[in-house]
Design a protein around this nucleic acid. Structure first.
Lengths: 215, 215
DNA sequence: TCATTTACCTGATTA
DNA sequence: CTAATCAGGTAAATG
Protein backbone atom coordinates (compact mmCIF):
# COMPACT_ATOMS: atom_id res chain seq x y z
CA UNK A 1 0.00 0.00 0.00
CA UNK A 2 2.75 2.31 0.83
CA UNK A 3 4.14 1.43 -2.49
CA UNK A 4 0.95 2.09 -4.19
CA UNK A 5 0.69 5.46 -2.66
CA UNK A 6 4.21 6.25 -3.55
CA UNK A 7 3.48 5.40 -7.10
CA UNK A 8 0.56 7.62 -7.40
CA UNK A 9 2.30 10.30 -9.23
CA UNK A 10 2.73 7.82 -11.97
CA UNK A 11 -0.71 6.50 -11.62
CA UNK A 12 -1.89 8.20 -14.72
CA UNK A 13 0.53 6.32 -16.80
CA UNK A 14 -1.14 4.98 -19.81
CA UNK A 15 -3.63 7.71 -19.33
CA UNK A 16 -7.06 6.27 -19.59
CA UNK A 17 -9.82 8.48 -20.78
CA UNK A 18 -10.59 10.98 -18.14
CA UNK A 19 -8.16 10.72 -15.33
CA UNK A 20 -8.37 13.79 -13.25
CA UNK A 21 -5.50 16.07 -12.68
CA UNK A 22 -4.67 17.30 -9.27
CA UNK A 23 -5.57 14.09 -7.72
CA UNK A 24 -3.93 15.12 -4.53
CA UNK A 25 -5.62 14.80 -1.25
CA UNK A 26 -8.54 17.08 -1.70
CA UNK A 27 -11.58 15.30 -2.84
CA UNK A 28 -13.08 18.72 -2.93
CA UNK A 29 -14.71 20.77 -5.55
CA UNK A 30 -14.41 19.62 -9.08
CA UNK A 31 -14.27 23.10 -10.43
CA UNK A 32 -10.63 23.57 -11.04
CA UNK A 33 -10.09 20.03 -11.89
CA UNK A 34 -9.35 19.53 -15.47
CA UNK A 35 -10.04 16.24 -16.99
CA UNK A 36 -7.23 14.58 -18.73
CA UNK A 37 -8.80 13.29 -21.88
CA UNK A 38 -7.27 10.48 -23.71
CA UNK A 39 -6.41 11.30 -27.29
CA UNK A 40 -4.79 8.27 -28.73
CA UNK A 41 -2.46 5.38 -28.18
CA UNK A 42 -0.09 3.74 -30.49
CA UNK A 43 1.73 0.49 -30.13
CA UNK A 44 5.12 1.51 -31.36
CA UNK A 45 6.85 -0.30 -34.15
CA UNK A 46 10.51 -1.17 -34.33
CA UNK A 47 10.94 1.79 -36.64
CA UNK A 48 9.30 4.09 -34.18
CA UNK A 49 11.85 3.25 -31.55
CA UNK A 50 14.76 2.63 -33.87
CA UNK A 51 17.27 4.87 -35.39
CA UNK A 52 14.92 6.72 -37.63
CA UNK A 53 14.17 9.06 -34.82
CA UNK A 54 10.57 9.47 -35.64
CA UNK A 55 7.19 8.29 -34.58
CA UNK A 56 4.71 7.75 -37.33
CA UNK A 57 1.43 9.12 -36.09
CA UNK A 58 -1.45 7.24 -37.59
CA UNK A 59 -3.22 9.59 -39.92
CA UNK A 60 -6.52 9.18 -38.23
CA UNK A 61 -5.05 10.16 -34.90
CA UNK A 62 -3.15 13.04 -36.32
CA UNK A 63 -6.07 14.51 -38.15
CA UNK A 64 -8.46 13.98 -35.32
CA UNK A 65 -6.35 15.06 -32.39
CA UNK A 66 -3.39 17.05 -33.51
CA UNK A 67 -4.27 18.99 -36.58
CA UNK A 68 -7.25 20.67 -34.98
CA UNK A 69 -4.93 22.01 -32.34
CA UNK A 70 -2.62 23.59 -34.85
CA UNK A 71 -3.43 26.80 -36.48
CA UNK A 72 -7.08 26.21 -36.22
CA UNK A 73 -6.96 23.18 -38.37
CA UNK A 74 -4.97 24.69 -41.19
CA UNK A 75 -3.66 22.75 -44.09
CA UNK A 76 -1.18 19.97 -43.78
CA UNK A 77 1.61 22.03 -45.15
CA UNK A 78 1.05 24.70 -42.59
CA UNK A 79 1.42 22.17 -39.86
CA UNK A 80 4.80 21.01 -40.89
CA UNK A 81 7.33 22.14 -38.49
CA UNK A 82 5.04 22.67 -35.58
CA UNK A 83 6.53 21.91 -32.22
CA UNK A 84 4.28 20.29 -29.71
CA UNK A 85 5.03 20.19 -26.06
CA UNK A 86 3.89 17.25 -24.04
CA UNK A 87 4.21 17.06 -20.33
CA UNK A 88 5.39 13.85 -18.88
CA UNK A 89 2.31 11.96 -17.92
CA UNK A 90 3.96 10.72 -14.77
CA UNK A 91 4.14 14.18 -13.41
CA UNK A 92 7.32 15.67 -12.14
CA UNK A 93 7.14 18.67 -14.36
CA UNK A 94 9.21 17.23 -17.09
CA UNK A 95 8.07 17.92 -20.60
CA UNK A 96 8.94 16.78 -24.06
CA UNK A 97 8.88 18.78 -27.22
CA UNK A 98 8.38 17.04 -30.49
CA UNK A 99 8.45 18.43 -33.91
CA UNK A 100 5.30 17.43 -35.68
CA UNK A 101 5.47 17.18 -39.43
CA UNK A 102 3.70 15.86 -42.41
CA UNK A 103 5.82 13.95 -44.84
CA UNK A 104 4.21 14.36 -48.17
CA UNK A 105 6.29 11.69 -49.76
CA UNK A 106 4.72 9.05 -47.62
CA UNK A 107 1.54 10.91 -46.78
CA UNK A 108 2.20 10.39 -43.16
CA UNK A 109 2.37 12.43 -40.03
CA UNK A 110 5.38 12.11 -37.84
CA UNK A 111 6.90 13.30 -34.65
CA UNK A 112 10.56 13.89 -35.35
CA UNK A 113 12.89 16.08 -33.42
CA UNK A 114 12.75 15.32 -29.77
CA UNK A 115 11.16 11.94 -30.20
CA UNK A 116 14.29 9.91 -29.79
CA UNK A 117 15.02 11.55 -26.48
CA UNK A 118 11.71 10.31 -25.20
CA UNK A 119 12.36 6.85 -26.54
CA UNK A 120 15.65 6.72 -24.75
CA UNK A 121 14.48 8.21 -21.54
CA UNK A 122 11.54 5.95 -21.19
CA UNK A 123 13.30 2.97 -22.62
CA UNK A 124 10.55 2.61 -25.11
CA UNK A 125 10.71 -0.63 -27.03
CA UNK A 126 8.82 -2.03 -29.95
CA UNK A 127 5.49 -3.28 -28.81
CA UNK A 128 5.17 -0.78 -26.02
CA UNK A 129 2.35 1.65 -26.18
CA UNK A 130 2.72 5.37 -26.24
CA UNK A 131 -0.25 7.31 -25.09
CA UNK A 132 -1.22 10.89 -25.67
CA UNK A 133 -3.75 12.80 -23.73
CA UNK A 134 -4.80 16.30 -23.03
CA UNK A 135 -6.13 18.40 -20.22
CA UNK A 136 -7.42 21.62 -21.52
CA UNK A 137 -4.58 23.15 -23.44
CA UNK A 138 -1.98 20.95 -21.84
CA UNK A 139 -0.77 17.89 -23.61
CA UNK A 140 0.60 14.83 -21.95
CA UNK A 141 2.52 11.84 -23.07
CA UNK A 142 3.05 8.61 -21.37
CA UNK A 143 3.83 5.06 -22.21
CA UNK A 144 3.36 1.60 -20.92
CA UNK A 145 5.21 -1.59 -21.42
CA UNK A 146 3.95 -4.17 -23.68
CA UNK A 147 2.50 -6.76 -21.55
CA UNK A 148 3.36 -10.15 -22.75
CA UNK A 149 5.90 -12.24 -21.76
CA UNK A 150 7.85 -15.12 -21.21
CA UNK A 151 10.49 -15.93 -18.93
CA UNK A 152 13.79 -14.72 -18.17
CA UNK A 153 17.01 -15.98 -17.06
CA UNK A 154 17.97 -12.41 -17.48
CA UNK A 155 21.49 -12.37 -18.73
CA UNK A 156 21.00 -8.79 -19.59
CA UNK A 157 24.07 -6.89 -20.17
CA UNK A 158 21.93 -3.90 -20.60
CA UNK A 159 19.49 -4.62 -17.93
CA UNK A 160 17.49 -1.54 -17.47
CA UNK A 161 16.79 -2.00 -13.90
CA UNK A 162 14.53 0.93 -13.33
CA UNK A 163 12.22 -0.42 -15.90
CA UNK A 164 11.62 -3.53 -13.97
CA UNK A 165 10.20 -2.08 -10.90
CA UNK A 166 7.55 0.15 -12.27
CA UNK A 167 6.01 -2.79 -13.94
CA UNK A 168 6.07 -4.88 -10.84
CA UNK A 169 4.58 -2.03 -9.00
CA UNK A 170 1.94 -1.83 -11.57
CA UNK A 171 0.93 -5.24 -10.48
CA UNK A 172 0.18 -3.85 -7.11
CA UNK A 173 -3.37 -3.19 -6.33
CA UNK A 174 -4.02 0.39 -7.09
CA UNK A 175 -6.85 2.68 -7.55
CA UNK A 176 -7.77 4.71 -10.46
CA UNK A 177 -5.46 3.10 -12.82
CA UNK A 178 -6.30 3.54 -16.38
CA UNK A 179 -8.63 1.09 -17.85
CA UNK A 180 -6.95 0.29 -21.09
CA UNK A 181 -4.65 -1.77 -19.07
CA UNK A 182 -2.04 -4.18 -19.95
CA UNK A 183 -2.49 -7.75 -20.60
CA UNK A 184 -2.56 -10.50 -18.14
CA UNK A 185 -0.47 -9.73 -15.22
CA UNK A 186 0.76 -12.31 -12.92
CA UNK A 187 4.28 -13.05 -12.06
CA UNK A 188 6.34 -11.20 -14.46
CA UNK A 189 9.65 -9.61 -14.91
CA UNK A 190 10.73 -7.24 -17.52
CA UNK A 191 13.54 -7.83 -19.93
CA UNK A 192 14.54 -5.08 -22.26
CA UNK A 193 11.27 -3.42 -21.90
CA UNK A 194 9.38 -6.59 -22.50
CA UNK A 195 7.40 -8.06 -19.72
CA UNK A 196 7.89 -11.69 -19.29
CA UNK A 197 5.64 -14.05 -17.49
CA UNK A 198 7.34 -16.30 -15.09
CA UNK A 199 4.69 -18.91 -15.02
CA UNK A 200 6.09 -22.14 -16.22
CA UNK A 201 9.21 -20.39 -17.05
CA UNK A 202 11.56 -21.67 -19.56
CA UNK A 203 14.66 -19.82 -20.45
CA UNK A 204 14.30 -17.44 -23.29
CA UNK A 205 16.24 -18.61 -26.30
CA UNK A 206 19.31 -16.57 -26.71
CA UNK A 207 18.54 -15.42 -30.17
CA UNK A 208 15.24 -14.11 -29.05
CA UNK A 209 16.88 -12.32 -26.22
CA UNK A 210 19.21 -10.70 -28.61
CA UNK A 211 16.47 -9.80 -30.96
CA UNK A 212 14.67 -8.15 -28.14
CA UNK A 213 17.73 -6.36 -27.03
CA UNK A 214 18.43 -4.68 -30.28
CA UNK A 215 17.05 -1.32 -30.06
CA UNK B 1 64.72 30.54 -62.15
CA UNK B 2 62.63 30.18 -65.17
CA UNK B 3 60.99 27.38 -63.36
CA UNK B 4 60.39 29.46 -60.42
CA UNK B 5 58.86 32.04 -62.57
CA UNK B 6 56.66 29.49 -64.18
CA UNK B 7 55.35 28.61 -60.83
CA UNK B 8 54.59 32.04 -59.88
CA UNK B 9 50.99 32.06 -60.51
CA UNK B 10 50.66 29.16 -58.24
CA UNK B 11 53.47 30.08 -56.08
CA UNK B 12 51.33 31.22 -53.34
CA UNK B 13 49.56 27.96 -53.07
CA UNK B 14 49.10 27.00 -49.54
CA UNK B 15 50.00 30.56 -49.09
CA UNK B 16 52.31 31.19 -46.31
CA UNK B 17 51.60 34.30 -44.45
CA UNK B 18 52.78 36.77 -46.95
CA UNK B 19 53.92 35.19 -50.12
CA UNK B 20 54.21 37.90 -52.65
CA UNK B 21 52.39 37.92 -55.90
CA UNK B 22 54.33 38.87 -58.93
CA UNK B 23 57.54 37.89 -57.47
CA UNK B 24 59.42 38.33 -60.71
CA UNK B 25 63.00 39.21 -60.70
CA UNK B 26 62.70 42.75 -59.71
CA UNK B 27 63.53 43.40 -56.24
CA UNK B 28 61.99 46.73 -57.00
CA UNK B 29 59.19 48.69 -55.52
CA UNK B 30 56.86 46.81 -53.31
CA UNK B 31 53.98 49.06 -54.09
CA UNK B 32 51.86 47.01 -56.38
CA UNK B 33 52.78 43.79 -54.84
CA UNK B 34 49.96 42.19 -53.06
CA UNK B 35 50.60 39.55 -50.54
CA UNK B 36 48.68 36.38 -50.87
CA UNK B 37 47.85 35.46 -47.34
CA UNK B 38 46.92 32.01 -46.37
CA UNK B 39 43.58 31.78 -44.71
CA UNK B 40 42.96 28.17 -43.96
CA UNK B 41 43.25 24.62 -45.12
CA UNK B 42 40.96 21.72 -44.65
CA UNK B 43 41.59 18.08 -45.22
CA UNK B 44 38.37 17.12 -46.88
CA UNK B 45 36.22 14.33 -45.57
CA UNK B 46 34.35 11.79 -47.63
CA UNK B 47 31.25 13.86 -47.08
CA UNK B 48 32.93 16.97 -48.36
CA UNK B 49 33.66 15.33 -51.67
CA UNK B 50 30.67 13.03 -51.79
CA UNK B 51 27.18 13.55 -52.94
CA UNK B 52 26.20 15.98 -50.28
CA UNK B 53 27.56 18.76 -52.40
CA UNK B 54 28.87 20.77 -49.57
CA UNK B 55 32.03 21.55 -47.77
CA UNK B 56 31.76 21.95 -44.06
CA UNK B 57 33.92 24.88 -43.13
CA UNK B 58 35.30 24.46 -39.64
CA UNK B 59 33.71 27.05 -37.48
CA UNK B 60 36.96 28.50 -36.37
CA UNK B 61 38.03 29.11 -39.93
CA UNK B 62 34.73 30.49 -40.99
CA UNK B 63 34.51 32.93 -38.16
CA UNK B 64 38.08 33.99 -38.44
CA UNK B 65 38.48 34.27 -42.18
CA UNK B 66 35.16 34.43 -43.89
CA UNK B 67 32.68 36.15 -41.68
CA UNK B 68 34.79 39.26 -41.30
CA UNK B 69 34.69 39.64 -45.04
CA UNK B 70 30.96 39.52 -45.20
CA UNK B 71 28.87 42.45 -44.36
CA UNK B 72 31.46 43.82 -42.08
CA UNK B 73 31.27 40.88 -39.80
CA UNK B 74 27.53 40.85 -39.48
CA UNK B 75 25.62 38.18 -37.72
CA UNK B 76 25.56 34.61 -38.80
CA UNK B 77 22.08 34.83 -40.10
CA UNK B 78 22.95 37.70 -42.34
CA UNK B 79 25.72 35.72 -43.91
CA UNK B 80 23.58 32.89 -45.08
CA UNK B 81 23.36 32.90 -48.75
CA UNK B 82 26.46 34.89 -49.47
CA UNK B 83 28.28 33.97 -52.62
CA UNK B 84 32.03 34.01 -52.49
CA UNK B 85 34.19 34.03 -55.56
CA UNK B 86 37.53 32.27 -55.43
CA UNK B 87 40.04 32.45 -58.19
CA UNK B 88 41.73 29.26 -59.10
CA UNK B 89 44.96 29.24 -57.21
CA UNK B 90 46.80 27.79 -60.17
CA UNK B 91 46.15 30.86 -62.19
CA UNK B 92 44.61 30.76 -65.60
CA UNK B 93 41.90 33.15 -64.75
CA UNK B 94 39.39 30.56 -63.81
CA UNK B 95 37.28 31.25 -60.79
CA UNK B 96 34.83 29.42 -58.64
CA UNK B 97 31.80 30.76 -56.91
CA UNK B 98 30.53 29.08 -53.80
CA UNK B 99 27.52 29.82 -51.80
CA UNK B 100 28.49 30.23 -48.19
CA UNK B 101 25.87 29.47 -45.61
CA UNK B 102 25.34 28.87 -41.96
CA UNK B 103 23.23 25.95 -41.01
CA UNK B 104 21.69 26.85 -37.74
CA UNK B 105 20.50 23.39 -36.97
CA UNK B 106 23.96 21.96 -36.86
CA UNK B 107 25.71 25.19 -36.04
CA UNK B 108 27.98 24.74 -38.95
CA UNK B 109 29.21 26.78 -41.85
CA UNK B 110 29.16 25.32 -45.32
CA UNK B 111 30.05 26.02 -48.89
CA UNK B 112 27.22 24.66 -50.96
CA UNK B 113 26.26 25.69 -54.45
CA UNK B 114 29.22 25.54 -56.73
CA UNK B 115 31.29 23.38 -54.47
CA UNK B 116 30.68 20.12 -56.27
CA UNK B 117 31.86 21.61 -59.53
CA UNK B 118 35.18 22.31 -57.92
CA UNK B 119 35.35 18.83 -56.49
CA UNK B 120 34.75 17.33 -59.89
CA UNK B 121 37.05 19.59 -61.78
CA UNK B 122 39.95 19.11 -59.46
CA UNK B 123 39.18 15.48 -58.82
CA UNK B 124 39.20 16.21 -55.16
CA UNK B 125 39.18 13.10 -53.03
CA UNK B 126 38.82 12.44 -49.34
CA UNK B 127 42.06 13.15 -47.60
CA UNK B 128 43.10 15.84 -50.03
CA UNK B 129 43.53 19.30 -48.71
CA UNK B 130 41.70 22.32 -49.93
CA UNK B 131 43.39 25.58 -49.25
CA UNK B 132 42.01 29.08 -49.16
CA UNK B 133 43.99 32.23 -49.35
CA UNK B 134 43.54 35.85 -50.10
CA UNK B 135 45.40 38.68 -51.74
CA UNK B 136 43.81 41.90 -50.86
CA UNK B 137 40.21 41.60 -51.84
CA UNK B 138 40.83 38.64 -54.10
CA UNK B 139 40.19 35.18 -52.83
CA UNK B 140 41.93 32.07 -54.06
CA UNK B 141 41.29 28.41 -53.75
CA UNK B 142 43.57 25.57 -54.41
CA UNK B 143 44.02 22.00 -53.40
CA UNK B 144 46.68 19.44 -53.06
CA UNK B 145 46.61 15.70 -53.12
CA UNK B 146 46.79 13.85 -49.98
CA UNK B 147 50.30 13.31 -49.76
CA UNK B 148 51.93 10.49 -48.39
CA UNK B 149 54.00 10.58 -45.75
CA UNK B 150 55.91 11.59 -42.88
CA UNK B 151 58.52 10.41 -40.81
CA UNK B 152 57.85 12.46 -37.87
CA UNK B 153 55.63 11.07 -35.27
CA UNK B 154 53.45 13.97 -36.11
CA UNK B 155 51.16 14.11 -33.19
CA UNK B 156 49.55 17.17 -34.50
CA UNK B 157 46.46 16.31 -36.34
CA UNK B 158 45.52 19.92 -36.50
CA UNK B 159 48.83 21.41 -37.26
CA UNK B 160 48.25 24.38 -39.47
CA UNK B 161 51.61 25.40 -40.59
CA UNK B 162 51.03 26.19 -44.17
CA UNK B 163 53.03 29.24 -43.66
CA UNK B 164 56.15 27.29 -43.45
CA UNK B 165 56.34 25.27 -46.52
CA UNK B 166 54.40 26.51 -49.38
CA UNK B 167 57.51 28.19 -50.33
CA UNK B 168 59.25 24.93 -50.45
CA UNK B 169 56.91 23.71 -53.07
CA UNK B 170 57.39 26.84 -54.90
CA UNK B 171 60.99 26.09 -55.08
CA UNK B 172 60.48 22.71 -56.55
CA UNK B 173 61.61 22.33 -60.07
CA UNK B 174 58.74 21.79 -62.40
CA UNK B 175 57.23 23.01 -65.51
CA UNK B 176 53.93 24.61 -65.49
CA UNK B 177 52.15 21.36 -65.31
CA UNK B 178 48.62 21.15 -64.29
CA UNK B 179 50.05 20.33 -61.12
CA UNK B 180 47.48 19.19 -58.85
CA UNK B 181 49.11 15.95 -59.00
CA UNK B 182 52.26 16.62 -57.36
CA UNK B 183 52.11 13.97 -54.85
CA UNK B 184 55.50 13.34 -53.71
CA UNK B 185 57.69 15.27 -55.92
CA UNK B 186 61.32 15.37 -55.49
CA UNK B 187 62.09 14.57 -52.00
CA UNK B 188 59.41 16.63 -50.54
CA UNK B 189 55.89 15.81 -49.78
CA UNK B 190 53.24 17.82 -48.27
CA UNK B 191 51.01 16.56 -45.58
CA UNK B 192 48.06 18.59 -44.53
CA UNK B 193 49.64 21.76 -45.49
CA UNK B 194 52.98 20.94 -44.16
CA UNK B 195 55.75 20.07 -46.51
CA UNK B 196 58.13 17.54 -45.29
CA UNK B 197 61.49 16.72 -46.52
CA UNK B 198 61.80 13.12 -47.22
CA UNK B 199 65.41 12.60 -46.83
CA UNK B 200 65.44 8.87 -46.99
CA UNK B 201 61.90 8.85 -48.23
CA UNK B 202 59.99 5.74 -47.54
CA UNK B 203 56.32 5.30 -48.02
CA UNK B 204 54.28 6.00 -45.01
CA UNK B 205 52.85 2.87 -43.52
CA UNK B 206 49.25 2.57 -44.46
CA UNK B 207 47.91 2.52 -40.98
CA UNK B 208 49.73 5.69 -40.18
CA UNK B 209 48.38 7.27 -43.29
CA UNK B 210 44.92 6.35 -42.28
CA UNK B 211 45.41 7.53 -38.79
CA UNK B 212 46.57 10.82 -40.09
CA UNK B 213 43.77 11.10 -42.50
CA UNK B 214 41.18 11.02 -39.86
CA UNK B 215 40.70 14.49 -38.89
C1' DT C 1 9.52 12.25 -63.03
C1' DC C 2 14.10 12.91 -61.71
C1' DA C 3 18.39 15.39 -60.46
C1' DT C 4 20.05 18.89 -57.83
C1' DT C 5 19.97 22.10 -54.01
C1' DT C 6 18.49 23.59 -49.59
C1' DA C 7 17.62 23.02 -45.02
C1' DC C 8 17.10 20.44 -41.67
C1' DC C 9 18.73 16.66 -37.78
C1' DT C 10 21.68 13.61 -34.78
C1' DG C 11 25.16 10.72 -32.80
C1' DA C 12 30.01 10.12 -32.10
C1' DT C 13 33.72 12.35 -30.80
C1' DT C 14 36.22 15.82 -28.76
C1' DA C 15 37.59 19.86 -25.89
C1' DC D 1 31.11 15.37 -16.40
C1' DT D 2 29.17 18.95 -19.89
C1' DA D 3 29.16 21.39 -24.08
C1' DA D 4 30.57 22.14 -28.73
C1' DT D 5 31.61 20.48 -33.02
C1' DC D 6 30.94 18.29 -37.35
C1' DA D 7 30.65 14.02 -40.30
C1' DG D 8 27.17 11.96 -42.14
C1' DG D 9 22.57 11.67 -42.80
C1' DT D 10 17.40 12.91 -44.09
C1' DA D 11 13.29 15.28 -46.22
C1' DA D 12 11.60 18.94 -48.89
C1' DA D 13 11.94 22.36 -52.32
C1' DT D 14 13.45 23.49 -56.68
C1' DG D 15 13.78 23.30 -61.65
Amino acid sequence: MALTAARESRGAEGGGGGVELSRGGNGGNGEERIKREHMFDKVVTPSDVGKLNRLVVPKQFAERHILPRLLGGAAKAACSGAVLRFEDGRGGGRAWAFRFSYWGSSQSYVMTKGWSAFVRDRRLAAGDTVSFCRAGARLFIDCRRRGAGIVASAPMTRLLVPAIVPQVVTLMPQQSTSSDERAARGRCVRLFGVDLELAGAEPLPLDLQLALMRR
